[in-house]
Design a binder for these strands. Structure first.
Lengths: 149, 149
DNA sequence: ACATCTTTGTCAAATTATTTGACAATTAAA
DNA sequence: TTTAATTGTCAAATAATTTGACAAAGATGT
């Protein structure tokens, strides 16, 4: 159980991560994924990826986090020997996984308590457990533990 | 239980999110947080925030996701009426929460199953439950549910 | 083996975004 | 009211990206 201050902090934190909408320049994506800018423009030309730009937001390509994950995934399959179009197909099979995974934590973060070396995070109620919540105990240099309370 | 293909996908996905290291330009941060570039440079001057640059990575300021969260949090406190130094202090109280929260999901993602409208994600074993795992059922337009299996 | 197609690299000229330094304007504190 | 802190604006310079073009490399098909 976090105290009142932590609840406010979490509310603020949740608002930020829930609404975070950041974009990367092509150079940033290239460096972060190891895919050259030339490749990125070609993939765009082929219709595999899309920058996210509105007309009032500058003339440079800007990519979302979702697109970053997609690009990294395509690259990963390419490295495995897949052809480009196959890599794109494999990537698209679960193109919503990233949204789901990160969306999960953004939705489920209820509260947190500061503990020695880290945090205990309340992820909310678990079905069929008489109202028990699942907590993640996250400490530096230790494997995260999950427990019910 | 995901099948063999999904386990490989998750491994790849985990590798990407675990090692993701992306950086934002100052314009991107400014747009994403609503904090002007002038302000960001002033906060840097004051020692409150730091771009992350190595000498071989260009001359423009580049900020990490962690720094993005910090900046957004400071802005949030400022909007609440705190002085800049107080906002920074409040933000620094839990400067590791972001790392903990996102680190949790990166560490704990075990596997996933595609279900109608979304995914069922296995987050691994829960203490004192005879080896049961906690699953998140994430579907579009539905609240995420957690259950033990 | 050769021809064709796809993909990636390189480069120049132009454009856009960021930098620094400086000063002004606004806001907050004493 | 004065002083200090914070933010806005601007010019000149520099860095990063754009587009178009062509070359080079790699893959595919006959």
């Amino acid at each position: 159980m976090g105290d009142k201050n932590n609840a406010a902090y979490v509310t603020r934190f949740k608002d930020i991560i829930k609404n975070e909408h950041f974009l990367f320049g092509i150079g940033d994506i290239s460096k972060a994924t190891g895919v050259s800018q030339r490749k990125l423009r070609y993939w765009e030309e082929r219709g595999y990826i899309h920058p996210e730009n509105s007309s009032d937001e500058g003339q440079h390509r800007k990519y979302s986090h979702f697109m970053f994950l997609k690009i990294a995934m395509i690259q990963s399959f390419l490295k495995e020997g897949y052809t480009l179009s196959a890599a794109v197909q494999k990537t698209n099979e679960h193109h919503k996984l990233g949204k789901a995974v990160f969306g999960f934590v953004k939705e489920r973060l209820q509260n947190f308590t500061f503990v020695p070396g880290g945090y205990e995070i309340d992820l909310g109620e678990v079905n069929d457990t008489q109202g028990k919540h699942i907590y993640a105990l996250i400490r530096s240099n230790k494997k995260t533990e999950l427990f019910l309370k």
